[in-house]
Each structure stands twice: as structure tokens, then as C-alpha cells.
């Protein structure tokens, strides 16, 4: 054991969030798809994977299914909101996450509502069950590396350049014969897929999920990280995830009661978000502005 149990826990969260944040950056930063509903994909992935695994599906299959199911919602979201612009689009995507939240809360026969889903099994891969957090750390590191590598290849490929062109000037791109709607939904589907994967990793790590894990405070965390890291920069997203997940840990030295620790962490995220918007909206490594 190299790290303390607590550090291992933080590292696992960081790798899970790196996937989530980079996937949001792919849609928001690279493609310019304003999406305030990204945590909904995270939640859909977590629930899909947890429920399927509880039904006896092998972990890898459940994880892939989580990604695919989330990307179906990504497709629907783009098709439905294509006519909207600016803050109406922002509100519609935010509204989408509220709809998903209330479905998780109310489809009790499937999701058990507010009671949440306990006892989510730890992943088993080829007869090897991941039991300790150290093993889980290696596993998420691996999945995170593969996911980020794929997304890195995507944004640096000719296809990725089309995504950036969509963000910069969609009209000009259509005049060049490219179907920007199809580019948009493909980007959103990829983004949702990896958000779903990270949701699955989250669910099987914590082993308990309920709808409140996928609501507006979670959204603030993810948005803060993406904006601090910078839109259109994978490197920025990775650095910012590590930073932002780590910063509030200094609070633990103050020996605050846990009822204060949680809200204080949230408040710090909010302050970081507002500060970065006021001082340096392009973030650490960003190159583009929010439209």
C-alpha cells in the first residue's frame, strides 16, 4: 500500500471525475454544445450499470451498457434542443437534468426512488473480483487512461476538427457540405457515453446511489472544473479535476463536523466558479469563450 486509505479514496474520485469532466469538455469546449445537463448522463450511467449488475450482468457489459444508454439520451437531447440558442438552450439542458432527476426519484419500481440502490456489487472482471480500494484505484486508472486517450484521439482527428469548426462557425461548415446536426449529436453521444462510463465507475465504487448524487450541486462541481481547466483543453480538465477535488480537503485539517464539511465544500466550489468567471473566464488552459 503506497497511499493512505483516504488518499486512495481521493485518487479514485479524481480519476472518475476526469472521465466525466473531459467528456463534458468534449461537448461544451470542443463542439460548443452548451450542456448544463451533463450530470444527468452521469446519473443514467450509474443507475443503468447498478441495476444491470444487480440483475447479474457481468461488470464490463453493464459498464458498456451504461455508456450506450446514456448516449441514447445524448442523441435525443441534441435532436430535441437543436432549435434553441443561448440561455434558452442552457435552461432546456438544465431542465433535462431535472426531468431525469425526477424520473429517478419517481420511477420507484425501477429505481427505488429516494431510498436509492444499496449493495451495488464491486466489479468482477474475468473471474477476478475487485475488492480493495487499491485494486479499484488501478482499475479506474486504467479505464480513465483508455477513455481519455480515446477522447484525445477524437478531438485531434479530422473528425475532431469538424467538431471545433462546428463550434466556431456552423453556418460556414454547412456551406462546405457538412451536416452539423449529425456532428453535434455524434459529439453529444460520445460525451454522454463517457459520462455514463464514469457514472458506472462511481456507482460500483460507492456501492450506493440515490438521485441526490446527480443533481444541481454535482453539476456545479463538474462545470467549475471544466471552466477552471479551460474550454477546449483536455490537459486543463485533468489538472483542474485534481486541483478542485483536492482543494477542499484542506478543510479536513480544520476538524469540522461532517454536517458542515459537505456544505462548506460545495460553497467553496461555488466561490471558485464565480471567481474564475469574474477573473479569468478562459480558465487555466482554455482557448475559447462560452458563446
Amino acid at each position: 500500500m503506497i497511499f493512505s486509505a483516504y488518499q486512495t479514496h481521493i485518487f479514485i474520485l479524481i480519476f472518475i471525475y476526469i472521465i466525466l469532466v473531459v467528456s463534458l469538455n468534449l461537448a461544451l469546449g470542443y463542439t460548443g454544445l452548451l450542456n448544463l445537463g451533463h450530470v444527468a448522463f452521469f446519473g443514467i450511467g450509474a443507475y443503468t450499470s447498478a441495476l444491470l449488475a444487480l440483475e447479474g450482468l457481468t461488470y464490463i457489459a453493464a459498464m458498456i451498457a451504461a455508456g450506450l444508454f446514456a448516449s441514447v439520451f445524448g442523441y435525443l437531447l441534441v435532436i430535441a434542443t437543436d432549435r434553441l440558442r443561448g440561455d434558452y438552450l442552457a435552461m432546456a439542458t438544465l431542465g433535462f437534468s431535472f426531468v431525469v432527476y425526477s424520473l429517478l426519484l419517481n420511477l420507484r419500481d425501477v429505481t427505488r426512488g429516494a431510498m436509492g440502490i444499496p449493495g451495488i456489487p464491486k466489479p468482477t472482471i474475468l473471474d477476478f473480483t475487485i475488492r480493495t480500494n487499491d485494486q479499484y484505484l488501478i482499475f479506474v486508472l486504467l479505464v480513465c487512461a483508455i477513455s481519455v486517450f480515446i477522447m484525445y484521439r477524437i478531438v485531434n482527428s479530422p473528425f475532431g476538427k469538424l467538431l471545433e469548426a462546428t463550434r466556431d462557425n456552423a453556418v460556414c461548415l454547412r456551406v462546405l457540405g457538412k451536416n452539423t446536426l449529425s456532428l453535434k449529436y455524434k459529439a453529444m453521444m460520445i460525451s454522454a457515453f463517457f459520462a455514463g462510463i464514469s457514472g458506472s465507475l462511481y456507482a460500483h465504487y460507492i456501492t450506493f446511489i440515490d438521485p441526490t448524487s446527480f443533481y444541481i450541486s454535482e453539476l456545479i462541481l463538474v462545470l467549475t472544473i471544466v471552466i477552471v481547466g479551460g474550454l477546449g483543453s483536455i490537459k486543463g480538465s485533468i489538472v483542474a479535476t485534481a486541483l478542485i477535488i483536492y482543494i477542499p480537503e484542506v478543510l479536513r485539517m480544520l476538524d469540522l463536523p461532517s454536517s458542515v464539511l459537505g456544505p462548506a465544500r460545495q460553497a467553496i466550489y461555488a466561490v471558485i466558479l464565480i471567481t474564475i468567471l469574474m477573473i479569468r473566464p478562459k480558465g487555466l488552459f482554455g482557448k475559447v469563450d462560452l458563446e
Binding site: L34, L36, G86, D87, A90, M91, I216, S217, L219, I220, L223, T224, I227, V260, P263, A264, Q266, A267, Y269, A270, V271, L273, I274, L277, M278, P281, D289, L290, E291
Partner: peptide, 25 residues
């Protein structure tokens, strides 16, 4: 500083989350 409406919206969500947690504390 020329922020877009979307930035203002995100900031306002940040304000909401901030005070929500301050009240909770």
C-alpha cells in the same frame, strides 16, 4: 467585462449553490 448571458446564468447558479450551503451551515 463582456460576459455572455450563459456565463451570467452559470454564475447565478453558483450564487444559488453558495448561499444554499451557507444557510445549511
Amino acid at each position: 467585462r463582456g460576459s455572455s448571458n450563459v456565463i451570467l446564468l452559470i454564475a447565478s447558479i453558483g450564487i444559488l449553490i453558495f448561499f444554499q450551503n451557507i444557510i445549511q451551515i
